[in-house]
Every structure is written in C-alpha cells, then in structure tokens.
C-alpha cells in the first residue's frame, strides 16, 4: 500500500531533522512504541504495540535510516514482526524550510519545517487477512498522531532549550 502526506512542524529544518533522528524523541512520539534502542549507526531495535481492527499485538522490529542528506531528506525503513503477522515499511521524508508555522499566533513569524513523506507499507499474516481494509485509515491516523506528538515534543524541547 502506498502512503504519502505532509506535516508542518513549528521548528527550523535543522531542528526537525535532529528531532526525527533522536531515538528518545521518536520513542515518545511513535504511537504504541514501547522501546527504541540504538543497535548500530542509524539502526534501532524497536518494540511496538500495534492495534488494528480486532487485533492487537506486540511487534519486534528494526528501524533503519538510510540515504541521509541532512537536513533535507532521509529514507526510513521499518520492519517488524509479531504474533499477528509482519509489517514492512519504507519511505522517504523530505524536509523543506517553511515560511511560517500554522500557529494560532500567526503574527509572530517563527521558523517552520514542511515534512513531506512518501512510501510503501506491506503487511502479512493475520494482520493482512483481517486488517487490510483498515490499514489505509489506520496508517494515516498513526502518522498523524506521530507528527502531533512530535510537534508537542518540539514545543517542549524548544521551551526547555529556551
């Protein structure tokens, strides 16, 4: 299944790129992520709880970053398997400087980063047999939640830094 979309984070592009590769931040932002551990350069082991349709289960997987072009783009490769099947996803995230963030406080111009993602998700086993019809909407929902959380992280982190 093809997925694509975009989100705008209220931080600079450099900052967004760093956030997107920070295991601690990612672990907090990824819905259902129970742990994310660095196991090599640009490679992390992940435990993630996934809920789809009538099923839920723990996935054991790997997250890998490749073709990294800071701060403009990188490729994210996620692979996981669990009791309810397996999933594989691969996509390219492209970051561009955006004029302003869409904040209620639009008057005060702040840096923003536009993140465009495009990729492919494949699932197998029970999760495919039972959940395929919900995969599209569920993926969108999870990605949206991820960016919302990331947004929150960005805000709190920048606050802390400030």
């Amino acid at each position: 299944m093809k997925i694509s979309g975009a989100y705008t984070l209220a931080v600079s592009r450099d900052r967004a790129f760093v956030l997107l590769q920070d295991p601690l931040v990612l672990a907090r932002a990824m819905p259902g992520c129970e742990s994310l551990e660095r196991i090599g350069p640009d490679e992390y082991a992940m435990k993630m709880k996934m809920v789809l349709a009538s099923m839920s289960g723990l996935f054991d997987g790997k997250v890998r970053i490749a073709d990294s072009h800071p701060p403009a783009s990188f490729r994210l490769i996620v692979e996981g398997k669990g009791k309810i099947g397996f999933m594989k996803g691969e996509g390219v995230l492209t970051l561009t400087e955006s004029a302003t963030a869409e904040t209620p406080d639009a008057a005060s111009a702040s840096p923003a980063c536009h993140i465009q993602y495009e990729g492919d998700v494949q699932v197998g086993g029970t999760i495919a047999a039972v959940g395929q019809r919900l995969l599209d909407t569920t993926s969108r929902l999870l990605i949206k939640r991820f960016f919302e959380k990331l947004s929150g992280e960005a805000a709190s982190v920048s606050h802390f830094v400030a």
Binding site: V123, G124, T126, A128, A129, V130, Q132, R133
Partner: peptide, 14 residues
C-alpha cells in the same frame, strides 16, 4: 489475494 499473496478477505467481515 493482494499482489504479495496475502489473503485480504480473511474474515467474515471481508
């Protein structure tokens, strides 16, 4: 079956 050979009508809801 999808193009990867996954049965996507695997339940009575589908």
């Amino acid at each position: 079956y999808d193009e990867n050979g996954q049965l996507i009508t695997g339940e009575l809801t589908d």
